[in-house]
Design a protein around this nucleic acid. Structure first.
Lengths: 334, 334
DNA sequence: TTGTAGGCGTTATCAT
DNA sequence: ATGATAACGCCTACAA
């Protein structure tokens, strides 16, 4: 079943059928209803291969997701899908490995999807600095800051990771903790990890608390196992800390497990705080204290910025959206 | 950059370029290396739209995933991707809403992707009974049993959900529990839910333990919140049970939270057991007892069955893969 | 408003 | 082994 068949069936020409199906103007009401009805009847669907092959500009917005096993991104994707559904655009989601180059990936996808704009969920500014120049459609980098990059078509929407980490640490400090271990990502690899680590250092410095990264910082993958192993390692040096700050909720969960295996209770013996605000955290016992990224907000602002760039040729913007310090059962006064 | 450009650049005709790029026979070694080198040099990539538009048979295997937010499936997808990477085939993953019709979805995808075979991750046999007849490529339904369906091109690979639930219940019973509440999916909607519920009933019956579904069974969505609300509801009727069997780990986690809010500890006051064997479960405190579905096994067998059907025209098979009862900290002797 | 026809980049079928 | 060429299904000028 092709539009040619539909044309024969309805008595119109393929051009008219195509226009009707795509909601173009210059189609009589009569033709439109007849064609749409016929299409409906046979469950007809345009062949996307042919469509995208021919189209100059698609009506696609491309969502490039870096990291397939990331609960925060999963939530965000759902939110973005919901929002895009209310627009005349189509969302094409592309999942990629956490350690491949998202910009190069986008570059290969562009001639195929011909997107009007691209949303990057996660990304490394280094990759952008190196390869983004070849991309000429409006883009938004979500969850990282691109304001330092010299690209006129690259916006960004993120929380202030550095300040968020700093504020989380300040909460722990204000609860009386002085010896705080930090488990995060590798600051050499991920911008976010570096910023969150810097935020921690800011807090220690401003409060005049000494912090030796060598002894109290561990760089791991954002995973349960990463948090688990890091906490084990920290504990193997003797428990000098009364609190752990984890740069992600999943890390915190792994760390809590490691503590439990040493007979340490949360929060009685050690306070633990994460980042992200995953739904899971509020079901754990104890509920996990965290820095919540407002998923809906992040999604909404990102799409708004992108659509403004696409529809109104608005210049690039670099937005900081608010986060929320969520004080819950896993932390307490020392 | 198209194969036409490549043809000009290398001095060969487009046909030869296409054949070389696709590893067809009847291409001289000289031509192949020259063309591949040129392609490499310009970072050339075939346009998938054009390719799939023209191809009679693709080299695609289609993976239709029902439910976007399902940790078990996420694991399985990863496993399948890894396995397919070792074959000459390409995996095309399609995610869909939990409550849309996976068979109809596949039906629309076929003319576009022209897959050699389809793997359904999750699915409702009702939908298959109704619409599968129109699909003529080999298919495998994973995590549900299709042996009762009259289709020669539909295989299935699953655990024995009924026996698994029964065995889990028997474990709880052998630990001395007599009043066990069950939280599962809606047996009217999902095959898996019905089978797991039936398994529970089997266990109660064979042990001569009375069970009133009205009072002790709750049907919810497979989510933290579903488990949480169901447990709250059960508790609101007074705590007559000493154990909860949840038909999914996520449900169990939600239920544990609800128990905690009533001051009930797991496993001291109530034992809780789930199903799936998510990695998360082994990091929780207490570690979650569960029925583990062996993801790698499920993935491997499914793909083997599909490839046998594709490559050797093997008849449909209906495989039952083993599960494992994982006794962990969240359950104990009553 | 509608019809016609050319071409998007590729594969596949012919010849050569 | 290679080259030329007709599709694949659709969109989009352009003509009517």
């Amino acid at each position: 079943m092709t539009i040619k068949d539909l044309a024969i069936k309805t008595g119109y020409a393929v051009g008219t059928v195509s226009r009707a199906l795509n909601g173009h103007p210059n189609v009589s009401e009569k033709a439109r209803t007849a064609i749409l009805a016929a299409a409906q009847e046979c469950g007809f669907q345009l062949n996307q291969n042919a469509k995208q092959l021919k189209q100059i500009h698609s009506t696609n917005i491309l969502l490039v997701v870096k990291g397939t096993r990331n609960d925060l991104f999963a939530e965000m994707i759902e939110a973005i899908q919901g929002l895009v559904a209310e627009t005349p655009y189509q969302l094409a989601v592309d999942y990629m490995d956490e350690d491949s180059n998202e910009v190069l990936r986008a570059l290969r996808l562009i001639p195929e999807k011909k997107p009007l704009g691209i949303l990057f969920l996660g990304g490394n500014t280094g990759n952008f600095a190196e390869n983004f120049a070849a991309i000429d459609v409006p883009c938004v980098l979500v969850t990282s800051d691109a304001s330092q990059l010299p690209f006129e078509n690259l916006s960004s929407v993120t929380i202030d990771d550095r300040q968020a980490a700093c504020e989380a640490l300040e909460l722990l400090i204000s609860l009386g903790h002085r010896h705080i271990a930090v488990i995060g990502g590798d600051p050499a690899i991920s911008d976010t990890s570096r910023l969150r680590m810097d935020g921690c250092l800011d807090a220690f410095r401003s409060r005049g608390i000494p912090f030796d990264p060598e002894k109290s910082y561990r760089a791991v993958r954002y995973s349960y196992q990463g948090g688990y192993e890091a906490a084990q390692d920290l504990l193997s040096q003797g428990r000098s800390f009364t609190a752990i700050f984890a740069a992600a909720d999943v890390i915190a969960i792994g760390a809590i497990r490691a503590l439990a295996e040493q007979g340490l209770k949360v929060p009685e013996d050690v306070s633990v705080m994460g980042v992200d605000g995953l739904p899971l955290g509020s079901y754990l016992v104890p509920r996990l204290a965290t820095v919540r990224q407002n998923v809906r907000d992040l999604a909404k602002r990102s799409l708004q910025v992108l659509l403004a760039a696409i529809e109104d040729s608005a210049p690039a913007r670099h937005e900081i959206v608010p986060y929320a310090i969520v004080q819950r059962e896993s932390i307490r006064q020392k």
